[in-house]
Amino acid sequence: MPGDWLFVDTLPIARQLVDSEGSKLSSVSLEKLRERYKIPLTGSAHRAMQDVTTLCYVLQKLTFELKLTVPQLLEKSFRASDLPATRPER
């Protein structure tokens, strides 16, 4: 994986969402976000591919709903090298 790739975790961003009554959502998960945005599951693809597709749509909907700009997303981004390295268990 190239060292200059940036990643954005959508769940912390989704915790900023509010419901129709103005309260923060009680639960945020990929499944809940898929339901909120009415994103259909794509065909008979492997579950991991369905999750990737759902995440793409969720990020698009989140940025629109929360009016996030590219610089704001870049502030929330990280590189793989920012994560603590884990050692394989023996």
Score class of each variant (00 low, 15 high):
residue 1 M to L: 06
residue 2 P to S: 11
residue 4 D to Q: 11
residue 4 D to I: 10
residue 4 D to S: 09
residue 5 W to A: 01
residue 6 L to F: 02
residue 7 F to E: 03
residue 8 V to W: 08
residue 8 V to G: 00
residue 8 V to H: 07
residue 10 T to A: 00
residue 10 T to D: 01
residue 10 T to Q: 11
residue 11 L to T: 04
residue 11 L to V: 07
residue 12 P to Q: 05
residue 13 I to R: 03
residue 14 A to S: 07
residue 14 A to V: 05
residue 14 A to G: 04
residue 14 A to N: 07
residue 14 A to E: 03
residue 15 R to H: 13
residue 15 R to A: 05
residue 17 L to S: 06
residue 18 V to C: 01
residue 19 D to Y: 07
residue 19 D to E: 08
residue 20 S to E: 12
residue 21 E to L: 09
residue 22 G to T: 15
residue 22 G to H: 06
residue 24 K to C: 01
residue 25 L to Q: 05
residue 25 L to W: 15
residue 25 L to P: 00
residue 25 L to T: 09
residue 26 S to W: 06
residue 27 S to A: 06
residue 27 S to R: 15
residue 28 V to I: 15
residue 29 S to D: 08
residue 30 L to D: 04
residue 30 L to N: 11
residue 30 L to F: 01
residue 30 L to K: 14
residue 31 E to G: 00
residue 31 E to T: 13
residue 31 E to Y: 07
residue 31 E to H: 10
residue 31 E to N: 10
residue 31 E to V: 11
residue 32 K to Q: 09
residue 33 L to K: 12
residue 34 R to I: 09
residue 35 E to K: 15
residue 35 E to F: 04
residue 37 Y to E: 03
residue 38 K to D: 09
residue 39 I to S: 06
residue 39 I to M: 08
residue 39 I to D: 06
residue 40 P to N: 09
residue 40 P to E: 13
residue 40 P to I: 07
residue 41 L to M: 05
residue 41 L to H: 05
residue 41 L to S: 10
residue 41 L to P: 02
residue 41 L to I: 05
residue 41 L to T: 12
residue 42 T to F: 06
residue 42 T to Y: 08
residue 43 G to T: 15
residue 43 G to D: 14
residue 43 G to S: 12
residue 44 S to G: 12
residue 45 A to Y: 10
residue 45 A to G: 04
residue 45 A to P: 01
residue 45 A to N: 10
residue 45 A to E: 14
residue 46 H to N: 11
residue 47 R to E: 12
residue 49 M to A: 11
residue 50 Q to D: 09
residue 50 Q to C: 07
residue 50 Q to L: 04
residue 51 D to N: 15
residue 51 D to Q: 15
residue 52 V to E: 10
residue 52 V to L: 05
residue 53 T to W: 02
residue 53 T to A: 06
residue 53 T to Q: 07
residue 54 T to Y: 02
residue 55 L to C: 10
residue 55 L to P: 02
residue 55 L to I: 09
residue 56 C to G: 10
residue 56 C to T: 13
residue 58 V to S: 02
residue 58 V to C: 03
residue 58 V to T: 09
residue 59 L to D: 02
residue 59 L to E: 07
residue 60 Q to M: 10
residue 61 K to R: 15
residue 61 K to I: 02
residue 63 T to N: 01
residue 65 E to T: 13
residue 66 L to R: 12
residue 66 L to Y: 07
residue 68 L to D: 06
residue 68 L to K: 15
residue 69 T to H: 00
residue 69 T to D: 00
residue 69 T to Q: 00
residue 69 T to W: 00
residue 70 V to F: 01
residue 70 V to G: 01
residue 70 V to I: 15
residue 70 V to R: 11
residue 72 Q to W: 01
residue 73 L to M: 12
residue 74 L to T: 11
residue 75 E to W: 02
residue 75 E to M: 05
residue 76 K to S: 03
residue 76 K to A: 03
residue 77 S to L: 04
residue 77 S to I: 06
residue 77 S to V: 05
residue 79 R to S: 01
residue 79 R to V: 10
residue 80 A to W: 14
residue 80 A to P: 00
residue 80 A to S: 06
residue 81 S to E: 14
residue 82 D to N: 12
residue 83 L to P: 00
residue 85 A to W: 06
residue 87 R to W: 05
residue 88 P to G: 02
residue 89 E to Y: 13
residue 89 E to Q: 13
residue 90 R to I: 08
